[in-house]
């Protein structure tokens, strides 16, 4: 099939970008979306043009490197997958496909479709851990955890840090990401000693990074490739407000 691509091209963070139209012909429906872009890039390279830059790595939906806002939706039109798992059979012959980078103040464009998502790392570094050193920990089975709790913590932990939640949110809010990270440890007994300190530190960093506020539209949940629930957001809100308004210790 043949497609018209409207791709955001931007040389670097300091220059203004614009849409450039490319023709992608003879696209196989078995290709992944990124493989389709690979083919376009091979052509561009051969013509002496700069290939389209985009982040990608594992190409199996787990590393969270790939992004792309495709026809108005992060990771494209299908739910529960990343762009690298999107196959061209999702599109129809002669479709026009608009490809944009994630747009957020906190995710500045590096080049073309690649953005800087280190804000997520900084939020994690602010408190997304249990303070245990290597060695000197109890036996793994010394801490029984009810299966439902372990499963729920796992559901939160499936976040791959791709940033689709921010990209989808009309406010560019990072609440789903942060709350998933906060929730995983807030649910588990291992996370309790630092539970309230953690949520305050991570929210403070989230605010400092310039993400927007949550208005509970649920777009993040709908677009999350790992289908993480906004229940996490409520849980984080509760913990944060408890920490700020009820807990006495300056934990």
């Amino acid at each position: 099939m043949n497609l018209t691509l409207k791709v955001w091209r931007q040389k670097n963070a300091d220059t203004k970008g614009k849409f450039v139209t490319y023709q992608a012909d003879h696209v196989s429906p078995d290709m992944s979306f990124l493989e389709m872009l690979d083919v376009v890039n091979e052509d561009l390279t051969k013509k002496g043009d700069d290939p389209i830059h985009f982040d990608h790595d594992c190409r199996e939906g787990i590393c969270g490197a790939c992004s792309l806002h495709i026809n108005g939706r992060p990771h494209g039109p299908k739910q529960g997958i990343t762009t690298c798992q999107l196959h061209m059979r999702t599109f129809k012959d002669n479709d026009t496909v608009v490809i944009e980078p994630w747009r957020a103040e906190a995710f500045p464009v590096i080049k073309d479709l690649a953005v800087d998502r280190r804000a997520f790392d900084r939020i994690q570094a602010a408190g997304g851990f249990v303070s245990v050193n290597t060695g000197g920990v109890p036996d793994a089975n010394a801490i029984p955890i009810p299966k439902v709790i372990a499963d729920e913590a796992f559901n939160s932990a499936t976040c791959i840090g791709c940033g689709a939640c921010v990209a989808a949110c009309k406010n560019a809010s990072a609440m789903l990401f942060v709350s998933a990270k906060v929730s995983q440890l807030a649910l588990l007994p291992q996370g309790q000693p630092e539970r309230y300190r953690r949520v305050q530190a991570m929210v403070a960093q989230m605010d400092a990074e310039g993400f927007g506020s949550c208005t509970n539209t649920g777009a993040c949940e709908a677009e999350c490739p790992k289908e993480i629930s906004i229940t996490n957001i409520a849980r984080m809100n509760r913990d944060y407000l408890t920490a700020k308004l009820i807990k006495q210790e300056e934990a």
């Binding site: 851990f129 249990v130 245990v132 290597t134 060695g135 920990v137 109890p138 036996d139 793994a140 089975n141 801490i143 029984p144 955890i145 009810p146 299966k147 372990a150 499963d151 913590a153 796992f154 932990a157 995983q184 440890l185 588990l188 291992q190 996370g191």
Partner: peptide, 22 residues
């Protein structure tokens, strides 16, 4: 054996039985 202890202490959500053990 130490690895599993370490990972659990960090909050790695390994699969568990209904009794709460790994």
């Amino acid at each position: 054996v130490n690895i599993i202890d370490q990972c659990v202490a960090q909050g790695v959500p390994f699969a568990r039985e209904y009794g709460g053990l790994l």
